[in-house]
Amino acid sequence: MLKRPLGNTGFQLGPIGFGAFKIGRNAKIKYPRPYDLPSDEEVANLLDGLIDLGIEHFDTAPAYGISEQRVGNWLSGRDAPVVVSTKVGELFEDGESRYVFDEASVRASVANSLRLLRRDVLDIVLIHTPHDDVAVLKETPVVQTLQSLKEAGDIRAIGLSGKTPQAATMALDWADLLMVEFSAEDAAHAAVIEEAARREIGVLVKKGLASGHLPADQAIPFVLNQTGVTSLVVGGLNLKHMADNLRIAEAALSQESL
């Protein structure tokens, strides 16, 4: 599989990453249809199948219910070359989301992610923001706390998973990578993505299929052919759909290289 560098992080990622929301949470969701959480066996089969396809980036978060725990349980029994990204800032407890960006909470979140994912070092940690992401960056110590944890060796790469181009632009001054919303329906981050490429800062794209509202055969090439994008993170529980997405992605990149 063709892999591309994630900025200067040292990670090489394939064109499609796996968004692990649906293996951990099915309450207060934004998806149009409800779904049952898969069993432990179904999760293991799904993750095994993703590795067999060559998908080796799993994106999770504390806000994704039991997702981190399930990814960690699966990793504990396998020697798989997986890059795992997780997040700080948003928590989902007792059926409600809340946001905490103070130093103690961020440090506790990273420590808990290390425990749940059963890792000595976290590959990637992103700031998981609400809509007022600019205020989070300006008014809280979350950036400085993540920088300190990276310097201490707890994290390899840090960045922002925000909402607005303004916050993403601010993050270019300190981030190793960005995770941004970008699709044929919403290209507001295009200029930030291009600037990140100039600075050799990695870019992961979320919601590239507009939560399922765009056809994959059009949406995926649009995202991956944008200069600066390393990979598109796609969620789901259907291994065939993930295989189809990967096939479309590889065809788009093959066409681009001609």
Rank of each mutant, 00 (worst) to 15 (best):
K150H: 09
A197P: 04
S85C: 06
G7Q: 12
L13P: 00
L116S: 09
G72S: 11
N245A: 08
E90S: 01
T227W: 07
S231P: 11
R4Y: 13
V234F: 04
L177S: 13
A135S: 12
K207L: 15
Q255G: 09
Q144D: 14
L126E: 04
R70W: 12
V106T: 06
T129L: 08
L237E: 15
G54R: 14
K138D: 14
V229Q: 08
E185Q: 02
V134S: 05
E250A: 07
E93W: 01
N45F: 10
A184N: 06
A197Y: 11
V205G: 12
K30N: 14
L146Q: 08
A190C: 10
P81I: 00
K240V: 11
G208A: 11
I193N: 08
D48A: 10
S183D: 11
L172H: 02
N26I: 03
Q69W: 02
P15D: 05
G17I: 04
G10N: 00
S97V: 01
E90D: 04
G17N: 06
G153H: 03
V233H: 06
A167P: 01
H189S: 09
V83H: 09
F18I: 10
L146I: 02
D244A: 12
V233R: 03
R247G: 13
E42S: 15
P38W: 04
S39R: 05
L114H: 02
G162A: 10
R247D: 15
A187V: 07
G49D: 15
D59V: 06
S148E: 15
S109I: 07
L258T: 11
A190H: 14
S109Q: 09
S105I: 02
P221E: 08
T9I: 02
I158P: 03
R247A: 15
K87R: 12
G208H: 03
A184W: 02
S85Q: 08
E185R: 00
V223F: 08
T164Y: 03
E103A: 14
A175K: 08
L116T: 08
L126G: 02
D94Y: 04
I124G: 04
Q12A: 03
H189G: 06
V192T: 10
F58V: 07
W74K: 11
I29K: 08
V205F: 11
E195R: 09
T164I: 03
L209F: 10
K240D: 12
V84T: 11
S113M: 09
L239Y: 03
P32G: 11
E96A: 07
E56S: 13
I124Y: 03
G77D: 13
Q255T: 11
A188V: 05
N26E: 15
E181H: 09
R4T: 13
L237Y: 13
G10D: 01
D79T: 11
L214C: 13
V143E: 01
H131V: 15
V143Q: 05
N245T: 15
M170C: 12
A108E: 01
N26L: 06
N73I: 15
V234C: 12
L91F: 06
